[in-house]
Design a protein around this nucleic acid. Structure first.
Lengths: 336, 336
DNA sequence: TTGTAGGCGTTATCAA
DNA sequence: TTGATAACGCCTACAA
């Protein structure tokens, strides 16, 4: 399986490979006529630049690594869409990997990206991530990264693009209050992640503002199974609530399914608000009131910031914290 | 930003870099004691193998490229899960790219993968894909690929892992017939793709078997918007149908939403069957009867086949066509 | 068990 | 405008 190289083109044309290289890179230091000749011969021989060799020589590969919990979550797949758009325009390739919410997977992925000499990393950390040695490694290796959505503290070098989860939690909760709910429960996620901690804070703030009692369960991982479990708990331990704010849609929807089967009327008995605006939330009945995070915009912005930092050649990092304001999407699960 | 190389380790230890290389590759042709020494020094210096250089030298990169229409479709994200599992065990990296159903994107992606010298490609083609020059290019460059789900004809070199869409279409349609439907419409996808053509064939076969009349619309791309459009057409041109088989869940669900608003009762007025078993199909009311494609199993099998072919060093390709039988998931949208 | 030497395919620097 | 040469970092015959 012989691969055509610049040397073969050079040999065929009886010129030097360095000239071929220049021509293929469209340098202006090569005569137009020979350039044409070279391009033609390259086409003819089916030449294809060996990106590995080129990157090795240039010590960079024009590649951005993206690390997310899972591609199947709507927020993340929209973020990817935004990232790819920006990256492509700037001539970067994108490598996507999913941690599946597992810290060890996340570690391996980041190690791998470093080893592959990516130019930068966009990351939304897993639910298990508490330490950040793997990210410290990036810095050590001169690879800039930008957090989006789920971030960690302690990285003055790196930017982050997030939403105001505190505001989101506050808005969700106050919406329930405005609808007349008096006993509102909140079901949160891992508190090591700011997104969940802040949603909880926002919830508390809204309660405090309106002088209502606090009623929250221990945080879960907010999977579908967790949602079902939480619904059972509601029927057992939170029997008197009239409103519930779930920290994501997946758990909220699973809970709704269970509660409906148990004869609880939504929103009459319990009004419900989710978080993320998964496509499913529009489909379930009653449709689920939720908070939209506009993943595509966040992805775009994060990618811009990263490319900016890559361009800066990691001298002075742009460690901006861009914060978007999430939007309440009012639907039937709170329509009283 | 100095990167630690094997040479620096060698210099620090006053030995040759080739010994270092051997030690780092855990060769048994280096004394245990020096190996220990080298590993320790490597750790100490924060050495990290330059995968680019290593791959260049070895002329292969232990990487599999995956090309799919979109990550946000349940079938594809489950397929990815299966692929990653198998790939990881075999020590391969996985690069995921989405064509977004656009042929030119798909072409670019494949070109890119070839340029990056991936060891093999797993692909499920876009709805726009009719030609396959880009894949012929893979063969020409000695890169094996395996189709999964959406495949093309004319590649005797490459295997494929698919489901029996004909059977799926037949099963879906006969299910409607068994439920008492007499006038069943089918809404298909691009006929260049075998999956949709075969689902249509299966539909026809079931009708023929039961002596029922055929009633199908021109194929669409089966997006959400298409689903809404199809629902409008049903109200206008297919007013008398009592059953509908959609070639995917996304369009079926969009249609259901519209029909419900228009006062059509499901399944009483029209029974509906989708295809793919998207998570949403379980959530909508009535829950949607559909055909499950078991993405993870397909992904796994496809990846195994590919790795098999990679191992064969593209001498004799395993061009097996593995066909899985899809399963009907009966839900409320056909419960008469 | 270790060292020597050369090359994977490109690109950058210098000289012509 | 072109050519010669070295280097990017690693691996692997071959020799010692």
């Amino acid at each position: 399986m012989k691969n055509v190289t610049i040397h073969e083109i050079a040999r065929a044309l009886k010129i030097d490979s360095s000239t071929v290289s220049r021509a293929l890179n469209n340098s202006d230091r090569v005569k137009e006529s020979t350039k044409k000749l070279i391009l033609k011969k390259a086409e003819e021989l089916g030449y294809r630049r060996n990106v590995l060799a080129s990157n090795l020589r240039k010590r960079k590969g024009n590649t951005i690594g993206v690390v997310i919990p899972r591609v199947s979550r709507h927020f993340f797949s929209s973020a990817i869409a935004g990232i790819e758009k920006v990256a492509q325009e700037a001539g970067f390739n994108v490598i996507i990997s999913q941690s599946l919410e597992q810290f060890d997977r996340e570690e391996r992925i980041v190690e791998n990206l470093i080893s592959n000499r990516v130019d930068g990393i966009l990351i939304s950390v897993s639910m298990e991530t508490k330490k950040a040695d793997h990210l410290a490694n990036c810095i050590k290796n001169g690879i800039p990264f930008v957090f989006f959505d789920r971030h960690l503290e302690g990285f003055p070098e790196s930017g982050r693009v997030i939403i105001d989860d505190n505001f989101g939690g506050f808005t969700a909760t106050e919406h329930l209050i405005n609808k007349g709910c008096k006993r509102i429960a909140h079901f949160s996620g891992p508190q090591d992640l700011h997104v969940y901690k802040n949603r909880l804070e926002g919830y508390k703030k809204a309660l405090a503002k309106h002088n209502l009692a606090y009623s929250s369960d221990t945080p879960s991982r907010l999977t579908e199974a967790d949602g079902t479990l939480l619904a059972k708990k509601i029927l057992k331990d939170f029997k008197d609530i009239d409103g519930a704010f779930f920290a994501n849609d997946i758990s909220a929807i699973a809970a709704m399914k269970y509660l409906k089967k148990a004869g609880i009327r939504i929103p009459e008995d319990i009004a419900i608000v989710g978080f993320s605006n998964e496509p499913m939330s529009e489909v379930i009945e009653p449709s689920l009131t939720t908070i939209d995070q506009s993943g595509e915009i966040i992805g775009k912005k994060a990618c811009e910031l990263l490319i900016d930092n890559i361009a800066k050649g990691n001298r002075v990092f742009n460690n901006e914290a861009v914060v978007f304001e999430p939007k309440l999407i009012e639907r039937d699960s709170t329509k009283k």
